[in-house]
Amino acid sequence: TTYKLILNGKTLKGETTTEAVDAETAERVFKEYAKKNGVDGEWTYDDATKTFTSTE
C-alpha cells in the first residue's frame, strides 16, 4: 500500500510517499524521515486517503 506524507515544517515543506504493509509501519518511516529533516510537528492521519500530515 502506498502512503503519503505532507510536511508543513517551518524550514521544510513538501511531500513524499512510501510503500508499507500498514499505516503503523508507514508512520514509523515518516516520523524517522521528518526527524532526519529537522521537522518536529503535530501529526494527523487520514485513512481514506492514506495520508499523514506533520505541521509545525
Rank of each mutant, 00 (worst) to 15 (best):
T11Q: 10
S54E: 04
F30M: 02
T1W: 12
E42G: 06
T53S: 07
T55P: 03
T11H: 14
S54N: 11
T53H: 06
L12Q: 08
N8Q: 10
T53L: 06
T55Q: 07
A26G: 01
L7N: 01
V21H: 12
T18I: 15
E27A: 12
K36A: 14
Y3P: 02
E24L: 12
A26I: 01
Y33N: 01
E42V: 14
L7W: 11
A23P: 11
E27Q: 11
F52G: 00
K10Y: 11
V39K: 02
E27T: 04
V21M: 12
T16F: 15
T25K: 05
A20P: 01
N37H: 15
T44G: 06
E19L: 14
Y45C: 01
G38A: 06
E15Y: 14
G41I: 06
K31F: 06
I6E: 03
V29R: 10
T53Y: 13
T2V: 14
D46G: 01
T25R: 06
E32Q: 09
D47F: 09
F52R: 00
D40R: 10
T53E: 05
L5R: 00
Y45L: 01
L7G: 01
A34I: 05
T44E: 10
K4M: 07
N8L: 13
D46R: 03
T25E: 14
K4W: 11
K31D: 02
G38V: 03
N37A: 14
T2G: 03
E32T: 07
G41M: 05
N37W: 15
K50G: 04
G9K: 03
E19V: 15
K4F: 13
A48N: 12
K35F: 12
N8P: 03
I6M: 05
E15V: 14
V21F: 13
E19M: 14
K13G: 05
D46M: 03
N8T: 08
T18Y: 14
T51H: 01
T51D: 00
A20R: 02
K31C: 06
G38Q: 06
V21A: 13
D22K: 03
G9T: 09
Y45W: 03
E24P: 09
G9E: 03
G14H: 14
T1A: 10
K10W: 13
T18A: 09
G41S: 05
E24V: 11
V21S: 11
R28L: 10
